[in-house]
Design a protein around this nucleic acid. Structure first.
Lengths: 106, 106
DNA sequence: CGGTATCCGCGGGGATACTG
DNA sequence: CAGTATCCCCGCGGATACCG
């Protein structure tokens, strides 16, 4: 590895920061990891996220390869979100963070 | 746990997000985890962070209990940053994220 | 050397209304 | 139901100058 770039903006940690640094992304991944979720479900469980922001963050997670978005062409429409392989590989980290957060704070 | 708050703004993951969500905090913790670091060292290794922002992020990490800040009253002054116990407990997670970031991106 | 003090731009994120 | 489309605010983070 280029030694001078060990901590620079293209190191692994900063890539992670960019991918899951969004305000709600960790929680969203966590919720979707339990099982495939419909958009409406997510919206109901996270009432503090506006719908537009929810769409945006989900799409970013999708384009970063963490989420899969499956569209069912029905009436009414249905869209389901699930973890990709990459997202599943991130799960242990997510679990550790959740535990660390629950245990060590106040 | 309050079921309705399982994914709300005070769940473990969102606490983690607030604590280490800053643009440079993961990398800073990572660098300081290797050994105790002086302010000037950090500044040199992270030339893209302005000095004022560096101070701010370090202080936030300190007040969140992740970093210890030791001031030596010498001339010239010396300030050293190191991980607290809480910070050390976060290390495995940091390591996982770094590996995941290095391996799975591009 | 290791900071403050100011000022400021940008974009993350929210509110609201409309749509296929 | 699952979105766009707009508009907008605030605060993160940067730039620059000064200080004990």
């Amino acid at each position: 590895m280029n030694h001078s770039k060990k901590y620079s903006s293209d190191c692994g940690l900063n890539k992670v920061q960019k991918m899951v640094g969004g305000k709600w992304k960790l929680s969203l991944l966590w919720y979707i990891s339990e099982e495939t979720r419909r958009f409406g479900e997510i919206k109901r469980v996270f009432p503090d996220i506006t719908q537009s922001m929810l769409t945006k963050q989900l799409r970013e997670l999708e384009s970063d390869g963490l989420l899969h978005r499956e569209i069912y062409k029905e009436v009414p429409p249905r869209v389901e979100y699930s973890l990709t392989n990459l997202g599943q590989q991130f799960l242990p980290i997510l679990r550790s963070m959740s535990e660390w957060g629950e245990c060590n704070l106040e």
